[in-house]
Design a protein around this nucleic acid. Structure first.
Lengths: 302, 302
DNA sequence: TCATTTCCATATATTGGACGGATGCCGGCG
DNA sequence: CGCCGGCATCCGTCCAATATATGGAAATGA
């Protein structure tokens, strides 16, 4: 025979009741099967666990020692089940979150992370910042569970992307640029002689293509300047008067010395912001994160 | 369905092997029953515990949480069994030991306790000192498990008594008594005028009766002096010249101011020393203690 | 002292479920 | 594209956990 949780449950019931008959009633079985099971357990343990006395059954020394060892096991089992259910519903565990460089400055992003932390305080967040391109492959290969990034048509088919917002692009100009001042929206054609500073297309197509498309929409092919790998270095290059750039409006909040921002006249260029995760077997945690992000979007736009 | 230890054992095997087929082989069952049992477990938990992938099975987040909760349970069960077996064989637990007042001074008694402590270091000893009469009822009513005491014919039938030794009685005299000095054994008749100080017969018949019998054996009926409840107070009364007494020889080791001890001429009065415990259902611990006491007796006498 | 009650053990029949064997389905790999 | 490793499903078998009925021992009370 092998010992099972059933034996332990029965044993504890008899130990508590001090009486086979009442214990059997509490367990919802008959008294003879209970006697039989306890006898099997005693045979397995190799020692008598109860003294059968006239008014019932009381623990032997061996029984007390055994009880000390197994008393917590039924509870332990239910706790393990609950903990597994919590993990399955995405209330606990680890979540790898990727943020693209230009997203971290959008107020919606920290708001979404804060909302998720509040709703699922037991989840351990691991946040990584990388270009949209790197984030996409991290998602596909499972290094990340969810990411907030700029979408592009070329994004892998096996990812689901939920739009969080459409953000206008603004022009970033050196402070000394002739067009750096002005209250009304800027006509992009005034920048057609300036080198356009962008990230290399290989690290993120979305912003790159949106900027090019904006220029072409008003009738000129921009001259590309020095490429910069990160959004921060783009602004540095602008400040150093290497050229101008088009960046998401949320970056206009940044107070970078030597850089001025101006909104752009219609047709206003826009770029998206999405939350992305695997289509097949997405971790529940990723779905929960996307839900939190959607809730924040609703609160901001609604 | 209710969860059993079997499910946990199977789950842990699959989690370790990462493969149903190998886990089944390790468990000594077929793969289909293992699949079935894991499926039952997942249904009971309410969450998938393994991802079935092409090369086997790997834990889900819920599976990891579940494993953290149940990983120790099989070991815990075997530990509980071992601990029960140890308790049953009298290696652990509590043992109530009673010592009669005049036994504590016999070197065999501390030697027996020391030997038991060494053989069963995990047993918690509770030592009580009381008169033989009180010890007997404590044994019968289960307040004590074993006792070292002076035996008498009137002792309860449901106790087993194993003789440890027969000890001669020596005379205890006031230091100023005419017979207090002398190398050879004392003739008891020289004390027939002195009041004989004993414990009341109600607290211990053995020593009381042996002393009376010794006097009668040499032809006089002793005059009883002030009774004293404890052996220490007997010696105090002797020192205060209230009379003389007959005490076990092992008390002769005590250096009590004002008290002199003399051996007694043949027929030398003797009194027994036994280890006693219940006949029915004696705790294994009591048997172990008696065995340790017997071993010490053998070492002393052999 | 005898009847009654209480409680545990035993005997036997039944049924649920754990298991084994055969097979099907899927994904990866040569 | 066929083979192979691996898990799921189906089905028959057998064990064991349970229920019912009964017996026996000890305490209780008349």
């Amino acid at each position: 025979m092998v010992m099972e949780l059933r034996h332990i449950r029965y044993f504890l019931a008899v130990a508590e009741e001090g009486n086979f008959t009442r214990a059997a009633a509490r367990l919802g079985i008959g008294q003879p099967p209970l006697s039989s099971q306890i006898k099997d357990l005693e045979r397995e343990v190799g020692a008598q666990l109860f003294h059968r006395v006239a008014h019932g059954a009381e623990l032997t020394e061996a029984g007390r020692a055994f009880r000390a060892g197994v008393a917590t096991m039924p509870d332990q089992a239910t706790v393990a089940i609950r903990s597994a259910r919590r993990a399955a519903s995405g209330e606990t565990g680890q979540l790898g979150v990727g943020l693209t460089g230009t997203a971290a400055f959008n107020p919606l992003v920290p708001a979404a992370i804060r909302a998720f932390r509040r709703a699922y305080p037991d989840v351990e967040l691991r946040i990584e910042e990388a270009s949209s391109f790197v984030l996409l492959s991290s998602l596909v290969e499972g290094r990340l569970d969810v990411a907030i990034l700029r979408p592009a048509e070329s994004d892998p088919q096996d990812l689901r992307e939920e739009s969080l917002m459409e953000e206008p692009l603004v022009a970033a100009l050196p402070a000394g640029h002739p067009e750096a001042r002005g209250a009304e929206p800027l006509d992009l054609t005034r920048l057609k002689e300036d080198p356009l500073i962008l990230t290399p297309r290989s690290v993120g197509t979305s912003l790159h293509d949106a900027a090019l498309a904006a220029c072409r929409a008003v009738g000129f092919e921009p001259r590309l300047g020095q490429p910069a790998p990160q959004i921060a270095s783009i602004l540095s290059l602008v400040a150093a008067e290497f050229g101008v750039s088009l960046v998401p409006a949320s970056l206009g909040q940044l107070n970078v010395p030597g850089v001025a921002f101006r909104t752009v006249r219609a047709p206003e260029p826009r770029v998206g912001l999405v939350v992305a995760y695997r289509k097949d077997r997405p971790p529940q945690l990723a779905l929960n994160f996307a839900k939190a992000a959607r809730a924040v979007r609703a609160r901001v736009t609604g």
